[in-house]
């Protein structure tokens, strides 16, 4: 009996669109991981960056996204078998965001998960499409010159609606 995997025939019309609206380091990754996975399955994939998510594609900011544990009661220290939390009152103190950001970046690196820029390079290399939001660009006083090189264009709400015809949408 010979079984030949069916790699090419299924889901060829599937289209996946993720709206990235957050600029915190921890909130950048869900979209990056899922976009990368979708592309690896041969699915047409688009990322649309809007509001705070714009920091993910502004060239001068994308390498410096931060993670703040303030207001996040679900943050536990990653120690096997122990449950260590820091009281929320301590979180806004100077240096906490920097420390938490460094910890998160170290963990990602240890798992060979790329930094935001490298991850976007990989997504573009895999055929993913990146789009900026016109209104966010206007609000942030930036244009295509300020964008990461992989961004195809800055588009408006109507363009977005047209582009997502028939797509599966995810808002992050």
């Amino acid at each position: 009996m010979t079984v030949i995997p069916n790699f090419d025939s299924d889901d060829s019309d599937r289209k996946f669109v993720i709206i990235c609206s957050k600029g915190n380091l921890d909130m950048a990754y869900p979209a990056l991981v899922l976009a990368n996975a979708a592309l690896g399955e041969g699915i047409e994939t688009h990322l649309f960056f809007t509001f705070w998510g714009f920091d993910m594609i502004i060239d001068s900011r994308m390498d410096d996204l931060q993670f703040s544990p303030a207001g996040n009661t679900a943050m536990h220290f990653p120690v096997k078998g122990k449950d260590i939390r820091i009281p929320q009152a301590v979180m806004p103190l100077p240096g906490m965001t920097g420390m938490a950001t460094k910890m998160l970046k170290d963990q990602l690196e240890a798992m060979d998960i790329p930094p935001v820029r490298d991850f976007l390079d990989q997504i573009v290399g895999a055929g993913g499409h990146l789009w900026g939001c016109q209104m966010s660009a206007d609000m942030n006083k930036v244009d295509m010159d300020d964008m990461y090189e992989g961004v195809e264009d800055i588009i408006n709400a109507t363009d977005f609606i047209e582009m997502t015809d028939g797509a599966q949408l995810l808002f992050i």
């Binding site: 790699f7 399955e41 041969g42």
Partner: peptide, 9 residues
């Protein structure tokens, strides 16, 4: 389309 699956196969 599906490099990971194809190369591992």
């Amino acid at each position: 389309k599906k490099p990971a699956k194809k190369m591992s196969y």
